[in-house]
Each structure stands twice: as C-alpha cells, then as structure tokens.
C-alpha cells in the first residue's frame, strides 16, 4: 500500500475542510483499504470520520428510519427498533459480507462506494431513501449515478441515510459464490403510494425495476410478475453469470422476495 497521511477528526466541518481532490474519507475501510493495497486506488490524505459522534446512530420514528453514516452493519442487523420497523433492512445488513466485515463496515461507506453488487443501494432505492450530506439532501433515485459513481461532490460527506418505512418489504439475493456479493439482489418494498423494486448486481448500477414494480403495484403477488419480461440487454455478463441468467434471476428473486414479504 502506498503511503498517505492519516487524519482523524471528530468534527464534520474539519473533515470536509481536510478533503481535497486526492483524499478519501475512511469509515470502515472495508473497500478503501483493499483497493489501496491492490493498487486500484491511492490517496494523499485519508480522513477518518469514525470519531465524529453525530455520524453514528439509529433513529426510528413511525414513518422513517434514520441511520448515521458510520453506523456499522452489525448495529443495523441487531437493532431491535429496525427489526420492528423494517425487518428486511436489518436482515439485509445481517447478510452483508461476513461477521468481521459487519463489525467494521458502515452504511455510509457502502453507499458512497456504490459497488454495483453491494446490498445497501438496493435498500435505498426500494425504501425511497434520502441521503443527508454535509451540504444537502439527495434522494436515492438521484444519488446513485453509475458504476462506483454517486452524486457526491468532492469533500461532500454523507451524514445519514433516511429510509421510508414501507407497508411490507423483503430483500432476496443470489450471492456470487466467490465474493459473496450479489450476482442479483432484489429489494421489494410496498409503500402506500406504490411499489419499488431495487435491483443490485444485475447492471452497472443499482436501479428500480419499474416493469416489476408496476406489475406489483397493480397486484402485490408473485404471480403478478410471471408475465413481466426482463430484457437481458444492459445486464452485467461475467465469468460468474451471463446477462441472460441475471435477467431471469431478477424475476426469480423478485418473486421470492414477494413471497417472503
């Protein structure tokens, strides 16, 4: 790993001030550190934000669940309040990586990285999340901009993620047998005003599978999906799964999710 300057701060303003065109915020480091080791990324400054108290924590109200950016996956997985409000969200967190990753990895880090096969982005899409940053609020449909790309500007820091509590929801994934990231992950959420189907792993970026969502809005049952056609164009294709297989799995896992809602 190339050398860098490590900064640790307990203040959001200072953190954003330290940021430069050649810096990265460090939360759990579950992606940042391996990427630097493999030479896929290098930075002059690493700004550790874990000591900023107000970035961590869980707040649940009747309508929303707000999770601080540096809240760890294990905290979300074990939160009694989240299990009650949005059980599928706690279950998603329980299924990220392995126990050691969940002990360190954070929600802010996950969505800022926007890995096309990460779990949390699908929850953001399905649960109409609003991402609160150091300078503004961004809705999930605007936040995830492309493969490993987000609407975040340089130095802009995620502070929390606010999820809308749905009527019912479920996340189902088919994990890559090697990395255990999602080959396809489908997050189905039924809200009062409609259904969202957040899909991760299938394309270069998480997306809302509108064809399935609109079918489910009309009738929330797995059979409603039977006749939905999911084209394979635009789907990822790699040694683990072809585009055709992924397209089929989007449907299969959407059905599984609906059945398990």
């Amino acid at each position: 790993m190339k050398t860098f300057n490590y900064h640790s701060t307990n203040d959001v303003k200072e953190a954003t001030k330290l940021a430069s065109s050649n810096s990265a915020f460090l939360a759990g480091g579950m992606t940042t550190i391996p990427s630097m080791k493999l030479g896929l990324a290098s930075y002059k400054d690493i700004i550790d934000i874990k000591r900023i108290k107000k970035l961590s924590g869980i707040k649940v109200s009747g309508k929303s669940v707000i999770i601080g950016a540096t809240t760890k996956h294990v905290e979300v997985a074990n939160s009694k309040e989240i299990k009650k409000a949005i059980p599928s969200l706690a279950a998603l967190a329980e299924g990220i990586g392995d126990p050691q990753v969940r002990n360190r990895g954070t929600i802010g880090g996950s969505i800022a990285n926007n890995d096309p096969a990460a779990d949390y982005p699908s929850a953001c899409i399905a649960l109409n999340a609003t991402i609160h940053t150091s300078s503004r609020k961004i809705t999930a449909d605007k936040f995830f901009a492309g493969m490993f790309e987000t609407a975040l500007k340089k130095g802009e820091l995620i502070q929390s993620v606010e999820f809308q509590v749905p009527e019912k929801s479920c996340y189902q994934k088919y994990p890559n047998p090697a990395s255990r990231y999602a080959i396809v992950g489908v997050y189905v959420a039924k809200h009062k005003n409609g259904v969202n189907v957040g899909v991760t792993g299938a394309k270069s970026c998480v997306y809302n599978e509108k064809n399935i969502a609109s079918a489910l809005s009309k009738s929330f049952s797995s059979s409603a999906i039977d006749n939905v056609k999911i084209p394979s164009s635009g789907m990822n294709s790699d040694i683990h799964a072809s585009a055709e297989y992924r397209a089929n799995m989007v449907k299969i896992f959407a059905k599984k999710a609906v059945d398990a809602c």
Binding site: L38, A178, S179, Y181, H240
Partner: peptide, 11 residues
C-alpha cells in the same frame, strides 16, 4: 488470469 483473487476464484 480472470480468477486471480478470492473475489473471483470460489474457495
């Protein structure tokens, strides 16, 4: 070599 890490080689 495409499978050059545990991300792609299934252990």
């Amino acid at each position: 070599l495409v499978t050059a890490s545990y991300m792609d080689y299934t252990m």
